[in-house]
Structures are given as structure tokens and as C-alpha cells.
Measured scan of single mutants.
Amino acid sequence: MEVRTIKVFTTVDNINLHTQVVDMSMTYGQQFGPTYLDGADVTKIKPHNSHEGKTFYVLPNDDTLRVEAFEYYHTTDPSFLGRYMSALNHTKKWKYPQVNGLTSIKWADNNCYLATALLTLQQIELKFNPPALQDAYYRARAGEAANFCALILAYCNKTVGELGDVRETMSYLFQHANLDSCKRVLNVVCKTCGQQQTTLKGVEAVMYMGTLSYEQFKKGVQIPCTCGKQATKYLVQQESPFVMMSAPPAQYELKHGTFTCASEYTGNYQCGHYKHITSKETLYCIDGALLTKSSEYKGPITDVFYKENSYTTTIK
């Protein structure tokens, strides 16, 4: 009895394709271990004539594949690729409408935090270190965002349907971005203890939790000093293409032309909904596939993004 075979390709990165001759009487799992086709788990399936010449994702289970996976995804987590594939199996079914010149995501599976993050990423200057993220990001900007969303979920250790947080998501993504040249110098002034300067680099240099107003941050924000008295913390120097200011959701007025974009969060910790506000020729609110415009805006804002380049204080 002759062994019926077909020729397929296996890959971990969709760049390096490895030619395989597979036995049609055995499952993919018996031949390769966990195997995925377009995100779908085909591990328990036997090869079919229609699979001839198709590319299958496999887990990096030998040295060659491990090197290829690390170079593309910059992670050695053995569960990463499987999590990416199972997320992709959902995100490829989502709709990605162009809204006001940006790629958004039609609401499904509690994905409003991903839509808000995706919209924000198209408006701030950011370059990702893992080629996987950078490639998928370019495709997302062009309207094909399924891979990018699935990668975000995998890097953030999230599953489809789980509630997510924009600030946490951005923080994970910033860790995989090139923020080497970003720098922030802060000064804390206390009447009792004097003053202390701190220099922050990388992710810490672009994120701040405690106030939404970048102007206020430049002037000074009140913080408790270690001595128990009130101290003032203010920005001395900022070198970065953008800054992200966050605070627990509270009524906040966004003035046209003073910011790049913002995240609105309605609801409580267990259950809520994100919308995205962007400042173009007027203010726009993007909620999944829905767009509304207004000249002014007041609502429960939790993150505001500002364009920056270089700032030095005039406070002496």
C-alpha cells in the first residue's frame, strides 16, 4: 500500500517557510505537534488534498525554529505562539472599519479597549522592536488589523473576551517599542525636605499616572512627601515624541487643539466601556464603527496623549 502524501510549508514567522512532505494517514499533531492554519487549530486533523502548498504555523520545537521565533517575536515564552494563534482565530472574524481616516474595530468580545489602543497607536510616533509587531502594525494602518490585535493580546497575556485596560495595554506595548531616546527629568520640591531631581528613561519617561493635564504637570502637581507634608512635583525636561497622561476616570474637559487623542471610560472596574476622542479640525468621538463630532467635550476621561518633541522648564 502506497503512502499518500502532500507537500506543505511549516513556519513560526510566515517569513521562513520549511518544506514538509506530510503523510495523509496521520494527523498534523502526530507529525508536527500543535499546528495552526489561519489561526485555526488543526492539530487533530489529517492532511487533505486542499492543504497542498498551504502554510501551517507550528510551535518552535527545534533550534532553527526557536531562533526564527525569537528573532521575529522577541520572546522565548513557549506558550506565546499558541496564544497568538488562538487569538487570531477570533480577531480574523472582527470587522476593521476605516473611521475618520483611522483603522478602528467594530465592537465584539469586549474589544473596546483594543480599538482605543489601536486608534491611539496610529496617532503617536512609535516604532516597535519585534519585527512581528512592526509588520502587523503597518498592515493594521492599511486596514488589516487582525494579526496586530492578536499579537497585542498575546504580548499582554490576554484572551479574547476578557476586559482590558488601555493604560495597561499601552504599557505592555511600550515595553516592546523603541523608547531608548526618551528621557524625563522631574523635580520634587518640599518646604521641609528641599528639592530632589529624578531622571527617568524609556517607558517611565512617557507615562504618568495622577493627572490628565500635561500643562498642569509642567506647572506642578501636589504629591505627598515622605515627611508627610505636601510637596510639588513638576516637569523639568521632556525628550520624547509623545507623552501619555493618565488618571482614574473623572469628568474632564478636553479643549480642541490642546491634545492629540484621549480615552474615555464609562462604567466601573468590573464592567465598563471605552471610547476614543481625537482632536482634528474639530473633536471626534470614535466608538467602534461609530463616529460623532463636537466642538467641545466633557466626560469621564482616563488617558490623554500629547505630541511632544523637546521641553525644558522655565521655572527657576
Rank of each mutant, 00 (worst) to 15 (best):
P130A: 11
A177V: 07
A117Y: 08
T159M: 12
S240P: 03
A108D: 02
G53I: 09
K7Y: 11
T314R: 15
C190G: 03
G272Q: 00
C271E: 08
K298I: 14
C149T: 06
M209H: 15
I152R: 00
T258M: 09
L235V: 05
A262N: 08
E71V: 08
L254W: 08
K293P: 09
F217P: 02
I152E: 00
K298Y: 14
F128G: 05
Y57R: 06
A154I: 05
Q31K: 09
L151A: 04
P224Q: 12
R83V: 05
L88W: 10
T313G: 10
P131D: 00
V3P: 14
I15A: 00
P300T: 14
M244Q: 02
K183H: 09
L133P: 00
Y297A: 07
N61I: 08
I6K: 08
A205G: 04
Y269Q: 15
A108P: 09
T282E: 12
G228Y: 03
V42P: 09
Y252F: 09
T232L: 11
T313C: 13
T10E: 03
E168H: 15
S79H: 11
K7Q: 12
G101V: 06
V206L: 02
Y57I: 11
H90V: 12
S25E: 13
W94N: 02
N129H: 12
M1L: 08
C227F: 01
L59H: 15
K191T: 14
L81Y: 00
V243R: 01
V203F: 12
G228C: 03
R167Y: 01
S171L: 11
Y172V: 11
L81I: 15
D38V: 11
P78L: 12
K255D: 08
K127T: 11
K95F: 06
F259K: 01
K93M: 00
I124K: 01
P78D: 10
D303M: 05
S294A: 14
Q238C: 04
S295R: 13
K218N: 01
Y252D: 10
K280T: 07
G33H: 04
P249L: 04
A205C: 02
Y172E: 06
V67E: 11
E2N: 13
C193M: 04
K183T: 09
G220K: 01
Y311P: 09
Y84T: 09
L254E: 07
V67S: 14
G228W: 03
V304P: 01
Q31M: 12
A150W: 01
W107M: 00
A87H: 09
L200N: 02
A115W: 04
F9W: 10
V99M: 11
T27P: 13
L81Q: 05
Q196T: 14
S246C: 06
S25L: 09
L88H: 06
D63N: 10
K307C: 08
A205K: 04
S310V: 15
L119M: 04
H273V: 04
D38C: 11
C261F: 06
G53L: 11
V67Q: 13
D135E: 13
E162R: 05
A87V: 06
N129L: 03
T260K: 00
L59M: 13
K93W: 10
T292G: 04
C227Y: 02
T120E: 06
R139A: 13
S181M: 12
H48T: 14
L291F: 15
A146K: 05
K293H: 15
L88V: 00
E168I: 15
A146I: 03
F56D: 04
A142I: 02
N178M: 08
Q251L: 09
H51A: 06
E296A: 13
Q134L: 03
S295W: 11
N49W: 06
Y269G: 15
F174V: 03
P248T: 07
E296Q: 14
A87P: 14
L153A: 08
C285R: 04
Y73Q: 03
Q197E: 15
Y297D: 00
D303T: 05
S181T: 13
M207N: 03
V12G: 08
E215I: 08
V189M: 10
V189K: 12
L133R: 01
D165N: 15
L118C: 09
V21T: 13
K7M: 14
C112W: 06
Y57T: 09
Y284R: 04
T64W: 10
V189N: 11
L126P: 07
C285P: 05
S246I: 05
K44V: 13
A142F: 10
V12M: 04
T19L: 11
S213M: 08
N178Y: 06
G194A: 07
G194V: 03
T5H: 12
Q251H: 11
I152Y: 07
M24S: 07
N111T: 01
N16D: 13
S79P: 15
N61M: 10
P248D: 15
D38P: 05
Q230G: 02
K229C: 09
A205L: 02
T35S: 13
R141Q: 11
D180C: 04
K92H: 03
S294N: 09
P60R: 02
Q31C: 14
P248V: 12
Y73T: 03
A177W: 02
T232V: 12
G202S: 01
N187Q: 14
N49S: 12
N110C: 08
A140C: 13
T75V: 09
Y137C: 04
N111F: 09
E281D: 13
E296G: 08
L200Y: 14
P47I: 05
P97N: 05
T266A: 00
L37Y: 13
T64F: 09
L173R: 02
G299F: 09
S50H: 07
F148G: 03
K95G: 08
T64S: 12
T313V: 10
A154Y: 00
G164L: 03
Y28A: 07
Q237G: 03
A142E: 14
K298E: 14
I277E: 06
K307V: 15
V206T: 04
S79E: 15
A231K: 03
V21D: 13
F80V: 08
F80H: 08
E68K: 08
T282C: 15
L212M: 03
T19V: 13
E281R: 01
T75W: 02
L290K: 14
P47H: 07
S86R: 12
T260F: 00
L118G: 05
A117N: 01
Q230A: 11
A247P: 04
Q237F: 13
R66S: 12
R167W: 01
G164K: 02
F56E: 07
V185I: 12
D109A: 04
L119Q: 01
D109E: 08
N16P: 07
